[in-house]
Write a protein that binds this DNA or RNA. Sequence first.
DNA 1: ATGAAATTCATACTTTAGTATGAGTACAAT
DNA 2: ATTGTACTCATACTAAAGTATGAATTTCAT
Lengths: 138, 138
Amino acid sequence: MKKTIFIFTSLIIALLAIFQINKYHLISQDVSMQFVIATIAVVFFIIGSVISKKTSHSITVSSQEINQAKIDELGISNREHEVLCKVAEGLSNKEIAHQLYVSESTIKTHVSNLLVKLNAKRRTQAVQIAKKLKIIPL
Amino acid sequence: MKKTIFIFTSLIIALLAIFQINKYHLISQDVSMQFVIATIAVVFFIIGSVISKKTSHSITVSSQEINQAKIDELGISNREHEVLCKVAEGLSNKEIAHQLYVSESTIKTHVSNLLVKLNAKRRTQAVQIAKKLKIIPL
DNA sequence: ATGAAATTCATACTTTAGTATGAGTACAAT
DNA sequence: ATTGTACTCATACTAAAGTATGAATTTCAT
């Protein structure tokens, strides 16, 4: 958000500079004046689009962004969350173990801990709960 | 989208009009010139924001209906679909059996058939695939 | 450096899940 | 009436998932 303000401010300064240049050198020429105005319009149009996209990204897409606060609240560790995502993809413990280069028993431990933390009885239920809490993507 | 183009065009014309007025009446006054430029900037910033918001809205919102055609294509029966939804809720075979007033072996049969039809190895994967194909809610 | 939390792994066990096979019932279409 | 489809159920089995316990290692902040 600070970046946005910075960029915004810079562009205003830049445009004022262009205006000043225009004022002292080309003030009476229609063509350059229209060019300046067109440039300003385009630049601010782009700025508006970008900012809107970024802010609306955190609003509309927030329904698909992970809720880190909830993860912390439930005491789910990084590794556990990683495993949880793999479980949500429909992978078996063995497949997850291979993908993460650990043993199957390690995955079993993680899954077991996840079930407790998510208050679930099965991995399918854990996925369902995790999606409801928005702690896993989509 | 046609509305957007219309609004966009109208505003360009409006701004050019303002420019013309400015040209013939206030061309030498800095204050009004800056005002015009500021107005242009703000207007186009708003236009950019609105357009961006509308387009991104139409992208993010459109997605939440079940695909009956796909269900038929895969040859999934009513009962199977019913079971599939229960599986997606994270229920066990036994729990589903109780809810549907049938035996657990019946559910096992349905699930087994579903796995074949959805080309899945596990129930978790079946849920994942089903959601991707939009044949189960959310 | 030390203690807490995180990660890893194993073994032994119980419980679900999933497969294979066969079969009975009901119902709609031919 | 016969055929096909959907639904039901059982038995017996294999495979995967999940629990419990204990322990070694690593990481990280106090």
